[in-house]
Amino acid sequence: MTNKNAASEPNDLGRFFIERANAGDVDGLVALYEPNAVLAFPPGNLATGHAEIRKVYEQFVAAAPVLLPGRQHPALVGDDLALTASTLTTGEVTVEVARRQPDGSWLWAVDQPSLEP
């Protein structure tokens, strides 16, 4: 089920996340991250690397959430790093660091998906 589209710009990652989460596509969600990425979710927990991130998203999609796109802020890009952020419909804010890959695509290296305003 994995959507093979690569992120050609940093903010593609947020859009792909919503699409893949709503489709229950765990493989597609994990594919948004670098192999050694760090995910701070659920709040208070850290998942490092694809195996741990996969476990988080297996539990997440099992709850069958329906995610709505919030307001994605313009990415702040400097060389091969980008800071991405979205304000969710709940008012929470997501903050991520994406890195440009050797093929020019983008993957998240660090993801803090739940900051309260």
Rank of each mutant, 00 (worst) to 15 (best):
K4S: 14
K4E: 14
K4A: 14
N5V: 09
A7D: 03
S8C: 01
N11W: 09
L13P: 01
R15W: 02
F16K: 13
F17P: 04
I18L: 15
R20D: 12
R20Q: 15
R20N: 15
N22S: 13
A23E: 13
D27P: 02
D27R: 08
G28E: 08
G28C: 12
L29C: 05
A31S: 15
Y33V: 00
E34F: 00
A37L: 07
V38K: 07
L39Q: 04
A40I: 09
A40D: 08
G44R: 12
G44E: 13
N45T: 14
T48M: 08
G49Y: 03
H50A: 14
A51M: 13
E52L: 10
K55H: 12
K55R: 15
V56P: 01
Y57F: 14
Y57P: 00
E58F: 07
F60K: 03
V61G: 02
A63S: 11
A64C: 01
V66M: 15
L68Q: 15
G70T: 09
R71A: 07
Q72R: 08
H73I: 03
H73K: 10
H73N: 10
L76C: 06
V77Y: 05
G78F: 02
D79W: 00
D79K: 01
D80F: 00
L81P: 00
A82P: 02
S86C: 12
S86A: 15
L88C: 02
T89F: 10
T90L: 11
T94L: 07
V95F: 04
E96I: 03
E96A: 13
V97K: 02
R99I: 01
P102V: 00
S105Q: 06
W106K: 01
L107P: 00
